[in-house]
Every structure is written in C-alpha cells, then in structure tokens.
Nucleic acid binder design. Structure first.
Lengths: 297, 297
DNA sequence: GCGGCAATGATCGATCGGAATCATCTGGAA
DNA sequence: TTCCAGATGATTCCGATCGATCATTGCCGC
C-alpha cells in the first residue's frame, strides 16, 4: 500500500541526497525514515534503494515511484490550497437558476464583470428544474435563483434586484403602435406569442387578461426571444416583454412598445438564495454586483 | 494533510452511497469512517459533506476532492502492480552498453525479437562511458555490456555470445583484393581507417601490427561504419572489420575482405552483467536470446 | 414507533517516531 | 598504504499517538 508519506519520503530523499538530510527537511529523524522505507519495501516486497556503501541509489522500482511522487504530490498539495480557497469562498461554482425567460439579457450584464472579478469562480446557468426553482435551491442543484416569484420559505432569502415595466411589443405598422396604452379587450383579435411556460406564470394573463375576463384570439409559444420578436416585427403577432428589452430590440427591428393598461404592468425580479450560504464570499459578491448593475439599456 | 486513506473514503462513500455501506467495502466499521472524515474535515477546516437528514451530500470542496481521488487513486493502484512487475523482473529498462563499434548490427538482431517478447521492457543502448564499460556496469549506468574484453572482476560475469573473424576490407580494385591473406608489412604504404578509440583497444594494432613491429602509413579515424566503408570503396584506405560485416556491405559496395595474417584474426564478443542481477527475468531472457541468435549474415 | 443511518465517547492496540547505539563507509592525514 | 575521525544508515527498544472498535446516543423517514 503506497501511502502519501512514502511518496513524500521518496521525493525528499531524492532532493536532499541522503536519509539524514531528508529527515531534516521532513522534520523527522533519520531513524523514522529508515523505519518507514524499510516497512514500505517490505510491503511492496521490493527494494526501492540499493545500499551502495553509505549512498542510497534508487532501483528501477524506486525510480518509478519517484516519478509517481513528482507527478502526484503536487496535485495533492494544489488540492489543499484549492480546498482552502473553496472553504474561504474564494473559489467555487456558482450555479444560477433562471425562472424568468427575458432576464437572461440582464444576467449577462452581471455575469460579465463578475467573471472578471472572480477568475476562480465558474458560473453555470440552469433553466430547467425538476421540482421548480425553489426545489432546485433546496436540493442544492443551484445556488441562486432569478425569479419574479419570491416564495418566502424558511431557509431561503429573496431580494429584489431590478424593476421594469412589462409592455406589449407590436410591429411598427401595427394599428396599436400609435396608442398610449391598450386594454385587454383591444387584443381580442390578436395573436399573442409567449415563452412556453404555464399560463399561470405569465403576467400578461394573470394580471392583464384574466382580471378583465378577456383573452387573445390565438396563443402561440416560442422558445427564444429573437425569433419571438422576428415574428412580431413581421406582424404575425404581439408579445409581452420587459420594456427595456423591447427598446433594445427596437433599435434593430421595426417594433415598438405599448403600455399594458392605463398604468402599466410593473414587475420586480428577485434573486433568491439559501440562508445557510450566507458568508460565501463569491456568492455575496454576486448579490452585490446584481444590486449595483443598474439596468439602463 | 490529504492522505490516501481520505481519498479512498471519499471514493468509497460516493460509490456505496452511505457511510455504513462504504465501511463494509473498506472492511472498516461505520464508526471508523465517521471519525476519519471528521478529522479530515477538521484538518482542512471545511465540511466535505453536508449532513442532510441521514443523507450525506458532498460540498463543492468534497466534489473537488472526490474528483482528485478518482484521478489519483487509480495511479497509485496501477503503480503497485507496476512495481510488483518490476520486482518480479517482468518489466523494466534494460540498459545495454556497447564497447564494440561494429557489434551494433548484431545487437539489432537480438533486440528486435526481444522487444516483441517483452513488451513491458524498454531497451536503451549507450556507447559512451565516463569510466569505461566495466565502470558503467559497476556504477549501474548500464545493466549489460557488449565487449570484446571480458575483464574478470568479482561481482561481474562475462559470457561469450558470438565469434567472428576480423578481416581487412579493401576496395575491389585494390592491389590486395586478390590475395588470400596479407601480412603487416604489406600495409606499410596503406591508409588505415579505424573507429576513434585508443590504439590499445584496436586488435588490428595489438594483434597484427605491433607483434610484427610494423604499422600503416597513415591512420585516420571515422565515427560511423557507413562512411568508413564508403571511404574504403573509394580507394581512400583500408579498414579492419568483422568478416560478416564486410560481407554484408560487400553486397552494395565494391569492397572485398582479405584475411589478416596467414591464419586470420579470430575474435570473440562477450556479454557482461552484474552477478547480483541474476534472477531478473527480462535480463536472463536477453542473455538467452543473445546466445540463441546465430550470426549468419 | 421502528428500522436504518450517522455521530459520539471510551477504550484498546497497532503503529509510528524518537533516543541511543551499532555497523559501515568515506576521506584525509600520517 | 594504513589508520582514524566524521558521517551515514541500520537496528533495538520504548513511549506517545493515532486509528479502529464497541457500545451507545441521536436523528430521520417510513
């Protein structure tokens, strides 16, 4: 059984040139080393050194193990520093869950400077959860959750990170394009495009159509924001998205925002995390950065 | 201090899924594992597992060390089998020293089948020795010595492996080419080409010229056999080489052999090794093969 | 409440490391 | 060359420490 000690001894003896000198560097006595190597040789049933007078010369087996030591020991030593960095929150993998489709653009603006600030932290973004975002947080599948629904459960903490207005995106030549705002009934003949999520999680339904007991003529789902807005620009439907996002895309596509209802649909996005993770530096840093990044498209 | 035990435990717990099951596979008690991991966590100052009810889940630090374990442990295990193979003489590096320039061709004929028979043995050939071939054997710089001079020292063993006749190689149109044999005085006007070794180690001098108190007109040294025989073929000199070697080159170059002296210069090549190396399988195997390979150019 | 799992505390023993000593080698001086 | 001093590794013995076990507790999930 080759143990770490044995590799340390092999390396030290090779570096120092003699047992006595090696014992010095290992803070042991020569006797201890002599015992150890004798035991190792016995367990391997091979000589690792040839006693040539008072000089120790490695056998081929010894040479092989020395090479192993020089290969493996640095890995162990490096691992110790890495673990200590992880322990101090200087390094790790930050796994972020997203329950808010259009927030991806915002997330990118936070992640970009974050990665620069924390070169030893990897960021992973997940969008599918078997038991919902909250479940993923509890199950340690993710460490942070970007969501519009801050379920206040014990053990979790949510914090608002940015506000925006949900607006209707329509093609520039659409009849509604000139209006100050639209009511639910004005969309009765329209095709509504949304992300493929349950209707009860779409604010355009829960806070706009349902209260008025109205609805769009047709409802299509599309996975990606880009294609969705291409469709809108082509006059194939309308969609509800964050105002800043519509404004951004409005620079390259013929689409314009229209307020939903007389007072608009205001929305808040929250960042949730486990309470027990408090004190992990790289996680706190992400929260701080998320608060600091003002959304100013 | 991350020890091999710790990595074994990490891997076993991950494989088995629980401490109790892991203890089973490691032939330890659950208590022992619990103590060990507690101590490891204390020494690293980090939790490696999160106690989630009665389930153990790895932390990021734990995941990192688990990856380390899966990377490093196989290396250690492999090393153990390799060392045991080396110990049993099934694997190693066979370092062969050459003190006989033209024997290289012969060595190749031995090494070729040897490498096929012993895929885990590497062969290295050295030709320069700080303290001579014998010194290299004693100093463990080489394991075998191919030499014409079997110095019989205690601790070493020499064994003849093949005989040949040293002949004079001359160009086909050379005046001596037709002769049955030449005497030393017949070369008094010739240029002799040899390898760059001391004259006292050249049989053409020690056994041919010196006894007759004669010598060649000029003496040139050339490193390689190929160039040497190119020179001979061009009529720029003559040289003494093994008969079989001259015969072999004679097929592609206009050179012919001429006997040195009326009875020829017979020569023996020996293979020397340390007595203490007796019992190393791959070394014995080489000796056996060397004896078996009949030189039949 | 029971069964299974992990944590804990006490205890025993094997192992490891150290002090002292022995055996041997090296290198320099006579 | 011989001989001696210094250095180096091996060995023996012994004590401290570490590791493993037993017995038990605590806790969770069915």
């Amino acid at each position: 059984m080759i143990d770490r000690n044995h590799l340390e001894i092999l390396r030290a003896v090779d570096d120092a040139g003699s047992l006595t000198a090696a014992a010095e560097t290992l803070h042991l006595t020569q006797s201890a080393l002599s015992h150890s190597i004798r035991k190792l040789e016995a367990s391997l049933n091979t000589r690792l050194w040839i006693r040539d007078g008072r000089r120790l010369r490695l056998t081929q087996a010894g040479e092989y193990l020395l090479a192993l030591a020089r290969r493996v020991l640095p890995q162990l030593e490096h691992a110790e520093t890495v673990v200590s960095e992880i322990a101090r929150g200087q390094r790790g993998i930050l796994r972020i869950g997203m329950e808010c489709h259009p927030c991806y653009q915002w997330l990118l603006k936070v992640v970009q400077p974050y990665l620069a600030q924390w070169p030893d932290v990897d960021v992973d973004v997940k969008q599918k959860f078997q038991f919902g975002g909250i479940g993923a947080l509890f199950g340690h599948d993710i460490d942070l959750l970007v969501t519009p629904d801050p379920l206040d459960r014990p053990g979790l903490r949510f914090e608002p990170v940015f506000d925006y207005e949900l607006v209707l995106a329509v093609a520039r030549q659409h009849p509604l394009a000139g209006q100050d705002w639209v009511g639910p009934e004005a969309l009765a003949q329209e095709t509504l495009i949304t992300y493929p999520v349950p209707v009860e999680r779409l604010d355009i339904f829960t806070r706009f159509f349902l209260p008025a007991q109205a609805g769009p003529a047709r409802h299509k789902v599309i996975e990606t924001t880009d294609i969705m807005l291409q469709m809108v620009a082509a006059g194939r439907g309308v969609t509800a998205l964050p105002g800043w996002l519509v404004a951004e895309y409005g620079q390259s596509l013929p689409i314009v925002p229209v307020r939903l209802g007389a007072h608009g649909l205001d929305k808040q996005i929250f960042l949730g995390r486990r309470e027990q993770d408090q004190g992990i530096d790289y996680l706190e840093a992400f929260m701080a950065l998320a608060r600091a990044v003002r959304w100013d498209p």
